[in-house]
Nucleic acid binder design. Structure first.
Lengths: 128, 128
DNA sequence: TTGGGTGCAAATCTTTTGCAGGTGT
DNA sequence: ACACCTGCAAAAGATTTGCACCCAA
């Protein structure tokens, strides 16, 4: 495994994600980081996003339909996606670990992660 | 909404999915259906897979990293993906509806679906 | 100095779509 | 006959990668 070296681009990407409560796609990250580093390339954004999620500093939310979303918050929590506007929100629910433990009981393999997502209509779209 | 018309290709795709316990990708479906209808095109496979999942006859599993997987079984159940071999398996767990209901209590929007997936090492890969 | 990081562009992979002709009802 | 469906190929969208140069340690 390669040694991790500091990079201002990676730092900026992580900082940006921490400030966001929604869960932007790589493209949105790219557009925003460009304001700070106009020369940054989309490839670099992708490289750093996967790197960060590999080392567990951010969370990658794969395939909510279109592009992947990224979440700066790594404490376990559920997600909700609105079928109408495509927005991805956080959702509070019961303890996820207990759910994973229950599942592990009936399963001869090894369970390490759990991902729960809900779909429906978000508050904003319901009131339209 | 358009009226659904019979098509031997669509029937073959559905039949194929019903016989499989794993959850093949569109490409795998394509390769297999070609044995019966050598002229079928990948586009047709995709068209029918989305059509079938829209009318609820199959399930589309779209968050596993690479290509989407398709499940001929539509009763609600969880899925497990092996980080080692990429295999997607079914998993028995507690009642999913109750989980969705619990989540709905703290959420001002409308929740219609729930999707739970676990990640880890499958039994086969554990014993290696 | 050295190996990881970057920008750029091309390549890859997956899925969708336009079109002209085929087929179920 | 009228839609719907198909095969084909091109297009689109998202992500990865090869390469030469740059920079942190």
């Amino acid at each position: 495994m390669a040694t991790l070296k500091y990079s201002r681009q990676r730092e900026a990407i992580k900082d940006f994600l921490m400030t966001r409560k929604d869960h932007p796609t790589a493209d949105v990250v790219y557009e925003n980081i460009k304001k700070i580093y106009p020369n940054i390339s989309l490839g670099t954004v992708y490289r750093n996003l996967s790197l960060l999620s590999e080392i567990g500093e951010i969370q990658k939310l794969s395939n909510f339909g279109g592009a992947d979303h990224f979440d700066g918050c790594v404490t376990p929590h559920c997600h909700f996606m609105c079928k109408e506007c495509g927005q991805v929100l956080d959702l509070e629910t019961e303890d996820l670990n207990s759910l994973a433990e229950k599942a592990a009981k009936n399963f001869p393999g090894k369970i390490s992660d759990c991902d729960i997502r809900f779909f429906g209509i978000c508050p904003k779209c319901v009131n339209k």
